[in-house]
């Protein structure tokens, strides 16, 4: 079919089109093997009772999905993941916006502060998870020591389910604050000063300026930051994995998150089909978030 259509092009154009295909062929071959085919196969495998060791895979339709919604571990991991993503993204945003607004203006040491706040974002996750585990140590950790200075009792940070998830959220906020700040600063600096000048002439100050200029003009960037951070938070795995490793004060079930549950079902219990169904649900959530972002940005701009 494509060959037929090509006839309408001149020989000169045809050679260029050929050039495009030749150049793109190896690229798309890689994309196909490493991305497209696995994505399709995840959907396919989720319809099977597929064991890593066993040789027979039986087709069971949507049974895996039906089982998932009765599996307390999966439901718990969904709840934890939503809480984790929601709380850390909200906290991170609320803290980073004022900092970004201060740093976006011309002020002394701004690049210095920016670098400090950004530092956790570029440091690898594993060493920082190990370090945070040590910070959270219930007996000798520095966090409980700081609390004790203010007369507060020790907290078993990584022990109690309700607390452990917040311990992870705190660490995530610490890690991603710099990312939010940098992006919001870009957004703020892109707002033309003309708007503010015009507003000043109209007599708008402080909060009013923020409400009528900063917020609406920053909205696309805010949305971008929030959505990418949420997607990132949904993919939380490394911290949970590292912090639950070992027998001491490690939360097991407490911080079960979606990817951890997928990992455990797939590579510990070898239930590849079941884990694929979980992965499909993760994919759907992420796609939904992205679609929201695109829709919203389009309607705004």
């Amino acid at each position: 079919m494509q060959g037929l259509r090509l006839r309408k092009y001149s020989p000169y154009e045809r050679s260029r089109i050929l050039f495009c295909y030749v150049m793109l062929l190896p690229i798309f071959a890689l994309f196909f093997v490493l991305r497209i085919w696995p994505i399709i196969r995840t959907f396919w495998m989720s319809l099977f009772d597929w064991n890593l060791i066993g040789r027979n895979h039986s087709f069971i339709g949507l049974d895996n999905y039906a089982m998932l919604f009765q599996d307390p571990q999966f439901l718990l991991s969904m709840k934890n993941t939503f809480l984790y993503a929601g709380a850390s993204v909200a906290l991170c945003f609320v803290i980073s916006l004022p900092i970004a607004m201060v740093l976006a203006k011309k002020m002394r040491f701004s690049p210095f502060y920016q670098a400090i706040y950004f530092l956790p974002f570029i440091t690898p996750l594993v060493p920082m998870s190990v370090a945070w585990k040590w910070i959270y140590d219930p007996m000798y950790g520095i966090l409980n020591y700081i609390l004790s200075i203010f007369g507060m009792p020790s907290v078993g940070w990584l022990i109690y389910p309700n607390v452990a998830i917040w311990a992870l959220i705190i660490m995530n906020v610490w890690k991603n604050l710099g990312y939010n700040i940098v992006l919001l600063m870009v957004g703020l600096r892109n707002i033309s000063p003309v708007y503010y000048e015009a507003a000043s002439i109209d007599g708008a100050y402080g909060w009013k300026k923020f409400q009528y200029i900063t917020w609406p003009l920053l909205k696309p960037m805010i949305l971008y930051v929030v959505v990418t951070s949420t997607i990132n938070a949904f993919n939380v795995f490394t911290q949970v994995y590292v912090m639950t490793l070992g027998s001491q004060a490690a939360p097991g079930r407490a911080v079960r998150v979606l990817l951890y549950d997928i990992y455990e079902n797939a590579f510990r219990y070898f239930r590849l089909g079941y884990a694929s169904a979980e992965a499909v649900i993760l994919t759907i959530i992420v796609i939904a978030l992205t679609v929201v972002q695109f829709k919203y940005i389009k309607s705004e701009v």
Partner: peptide
């Protein structure tokens, strides 16, 4: 599409 779907979600078939 490949940019949107997170890597970890198709790690099993890979």
């Amino acid at each position: 599409v490949t940019a949107i779907v997170p890597f970890e979600s198709y790690v099993i078939p890979l």
